[in-house]
Amino acid sequence: MSKIGLYFGTFNPMHIGHLIIANHMVENSDLDEIWMVVTPHNPFKKKSSLLDNHERFEMIYRATANYQKINPSDIEFNLPQPNYTIHTLAHISEVHPNKEFCLIMGEDNLKSLHKWKNYETILEHHHIYVYPRIADGVMDDQFKNHPKIHKVDAPIVQISSTMIRKGIKDRKNIQPLLPKEVWDYIDEMNFYNK
């Protein structure tokens, strides 16, 4: 049974930080693949700032074409909104019964895991792989020694999609922060200029 790490995000846009983390996680853990799951709508972000779902999926598709172990996923596109991770996990496990699905998240997100819908059920059935982030404090004590939570010593990448969108709007050269395929697509489609 292959072990798949699900890396959720709006990826608006996908940047080299996302790719560095995904590649590091799949190369330095027991995960066989990473699926970069494009989230249609994050209730904590303004929807108006999001590119179309398929445009963000296209960025990941182009950026990961040469990475055999990293794949884009649109699994959430046809699920009811707002969507919860517990529902996605149930759906994806039903569609792919021969795969074991794990979550990938930053240490900052782990700190709020106890607020997630049915987080106990998630932990009962799925492993979580955590990469470090610069944030206040460290891993929450209730999750520190949890058998299903694995901290992976990955590079800390301080790049945000918000910073990139602002840079493009302000006509700054942000090319080094994006995979070439993503920059070419953004430039070709004239994204984030307004």
Rank of each mutant, 00 (worst) to 15 (best):
P43G: 11
I86D: 06
V26E: 00
N12T: 00
T39S: 12
K117Q: 11
Q175D: 12
M105I: 08
N23Q: 14
I104W: 11
E188D: 12
I92C: 03
I60W: 04
K166I: 07
H126K: 00
R62Q: 09
H41L: 09
F143R: 06
E107I: 12
T162W: 05
V182C: 06
N66Q: 15
G9L: 04
F44L: 09
G106Q: 11
K111H: 11
K172A: 07
N71A: 03
L177K: 06
N28I: 07
K45N: 04
Y185D: 01
D184S: 13
E120N: 14
H126R: 07
I34C: 02
I164K: 02
H126D: 04
W35S: 03
I186S: 00
W116N: 09
T162V: 08
K45W: 08
L177N: 03
K117V: 15
P176Y: 14
R62F: 02
D108T: 10
H91C: 06
V138H: 15
L51T: 08
T121D: 09
M139F: 04
K194N: 11
T10L: 09
P155H: 14
Y131Q: 01
I21M: 13
K115H: 15
V152Y: 13
N109H: 09
A154T: 03
T162R: 08
P176I: 12
D170M: 08
D153I: 13
Y7G: 03
Y119V: 02
G137R: 10
T121W: 02
N145V: 03
Q175C: 01
K172T: 04
I186V: 15
E107K: 09
F57E: 08
P176T: 07
W116P: 01
P43H: 08
V138W: 10
M105T: 03
K180P: 10
L89R: 08
P147Y: 13
F101Y: 09
H41E: 14
N193V: 12
D74I: 01
Q158N: 15
H91S: 09
Y7S: 02
T64K: 02
H125A: 09
V26I: 07
L110G: 06
H24P: 00
H41V: 08
L51Y: 14
E58H: 08
S93G: 13
A135E: 14
N193I: 12
S29P: 11
V182S: 04
I168H: 12
I186M: 07
K166W: 12
T85M: 06
M14I: 10
H91T: 12
N109T: 05
K151N: 11
C102V: 09
I104E: 12
E181D: 05
H125G: 00
Y185P: 03
I174N: 07
T85R: 00
